[in-house]
Design a protein around this nucleic acid. Structure first.
Lengths: 334, 334
DNA sequence: TCGTTGTCCGCAAGCGTTTTCGTGCCAGCT
DNA sequence: AGCTGGCACGAAAACGCTTGCGGACAACGA
């Protein structure tokens, strides 16, 4: 930068301001400066700039599990808006472990990132003092997908109650009489879907029984067990709404192994609409959630609140889910 | 930091050195400083430090496609060693597009990251001047999974020739007579697997024909088409080795739709051993590649070469693949 | 006593930007 | 002519840390 200044016979300040389109600089010199900078291949030094401005232009993306393509796609969505906006994204993976999550957020705070995008692994029961700590330091953050009660903040996610409703009503329409829900764990997505499930049952005059809500977590292993348990119920359920597609895939397999036909004996629907649903033994119906959109929207929201000086009133953005019907739930003749 | 110095009645320098375990400082004062620092919750400012030392402690991880769980797992492996070592990882996704890749690496260079981990999307035909530019600037980098001819450098990956050999010989052992390879595109992994396939054929006295190597890329869509083409060949192949599991999943479906039985009419094996292989119509045999290990090893290698002042002679680490047999290729009676 | 060595510590000078506050200059007005 | 006000630019300080060097002091051998 000094070199450029010397080249042009102006001061270093002029160069600095010109490059940042500061209003102080005349159109003419700015052009000259910018041109010369390009010629010399000047790149601003981020550390120096950061040191002076106290902003890093780095945002931390905290994800429960990169291996779920759902979250991987969110990461893509996030990058697709943060990249062009000049932000650097650093991803960290909490492995669904709230303790990890806290630790990672802490180290990112120490690294002084400008903002956070958090898909929290925090259980609603959890303390979540980390969010308080973020608020104290006035570090902007947006939560996505999961909304821990303790976090209370900007949020972007799918309308999970609607997810539950869509899936359940679909099963009802397909003529299922006894509908079970393999639920997720105690994060907002899990809870809300249960609520949607209950509401749908109620609306159609079905009786709700807590025996018909079985905890399956969100990993395959736990799904197998939950499904086995489910099949031992009497009367045997003829419709299953699963927390996610991984669980649903298990469910299908367990059902087939038990000699049942899917969907005629038992209809199964998942949620998340993951990439390989088409390739399962029985192509899986699912409630689609646009993870790309979640990523995009949360990134946009974060940029907005990082930009404004004032603290922005908490905002919630809900993305409507969409039913994708494949074979696993299709019992009506076409 | 100044505060701590004042607290203890020592100079700021002493504090700085003490915190970095500089040899200049007596054990006693160091203890005092460190203790006080903890009490006051001191966190070093990375920008300031970076500005002074010209190192950022950030490494760029460039990945062709986060949505492939293969790469997502590599990312996890990388993080699992870089995190504890005090490095920050920023992931960027090239979408299998060499132009994106170059752009992203460039912006990361401008951000002055300390090193790169690159799973290159570069085709072997490509120019790849970006690698030259890295070498000129003496920025350390390690390639993983893919090894573009033009990159010539530290590399960690699976022994892809061995992948091809394992899969092909397995099919031969299962009694397949006409074995086809649905190959990937022009990256090293694709090319090497073809070579392994050929060698295995040769070793067992099978004839090689280029008609039996069909380009399928690495996405599902292209797989369907390739598989259809394959089924029209005469004599009809009875063994298929697919570039990856996504392609293999397609292959199974297309085969079933065509009225063939898998594996008795046609045996199919993939590569990558992805998470949901168990849930396909026919559980998919695959050649497992430990992506976690790839991630780990490359991160370790990078740390090593970032640490040493001298330029380290190029090293290649090959990870042996492992055959995982499930139903889709199992024709011999048990 | 005097140099010599070694240990522990502090001074000063950066690292590459931005920010705040001038300063000179000219146009335009009275 | 004198004043105001806006415009284009520059000087100096700051951001928080590190590095190179030199200084104080004690212990030690001669």
């Amino acid at each position: 930068m000094a070199d450029i200044a010397e080249d042009l016979g102006v001061s270093l300040m002029t160069v600095s301001k010109a490059l940042r389109h500061h209003s102080d600089i005349s159109e003419k010199t700015r052009k000259r400066v910018i041109r010369r900078a390009r010629e010399r291949g000047y790149e601003p030094n981020w550390m120096a700039r950061g040191l002076a401005t106290r902003r890093t232009h780095v945002v931390g993306l905290v994800i429960p599990d990169l291996m779920h393509s759902f979250f991987a796609e969110i990461a893509k969505g996030v990058a697709s808006v943060l990249d062009p906006a000049g932000y650097q994204v650093t991803i960290s993976n909490s492995d669904e472990n709230p303790a990890n999550e806290e630790r990672q957020i802490s180290t990112l705070i120490a690294r002084s990132v400008d903002g956070f995008l958090i898909g929290s692994a925090e259980r609603d029961s959890g303390g979540a003092k980390i969010f308080k700590s973020l608020r104290i330091r006035k570090i902007p953050y947006v939560l996505f997908d999961r909304l821990p009660a303790s976090a209370g903040a900007h949020y972007v996610g799918v309308d999970d109650e609607e997810v539950g409703r869509l899936a359940t009503e679909h099963l009802i329409e397909q003529g299922c009489r006894t509908i079970v829900h393999l639920r997720g764990h105690e994060v907002s997505t899990g809870v809300d879907r249960v609520r949607g499930y209950r509401k749908a049952l109620a609306r159609h005059g079905f009786e709700f029984s807590s025996r018909y809500v079985i905890r399956a977590g969100n990993k395959e292993e736990s799904g197998v067990e939950a499904m086995r348990k489910l099949l031992r119920l009497t009367p045997r359920p003829d419709g299953v709404f699963c927390y996610n597609d991984a669980i649903a895939a298990c469910a299908i397999r367990v059902a087939l192994e038990a000699g049942l036909r899917v969907p005629s004996d038992i209809a199964i629907i998942g949620s998340g609409n993951f990439r390989h649903s088409d390739f399962l033994c029985v192509p899986l119906s699912s409630v689609h959630q646009s993870s790309l959109l979640i990523g995009r929207k949360s990134a946009e929201l974060l940029i907005e609140i990082m930009g404004s000086e004032e603290t922005v009133p908490a905002r919630r953005i809900l993305i409507p889910p969409r039913l994708v019907v494949r074979e696993s739930s299709l019992r009506t003749a076409k």
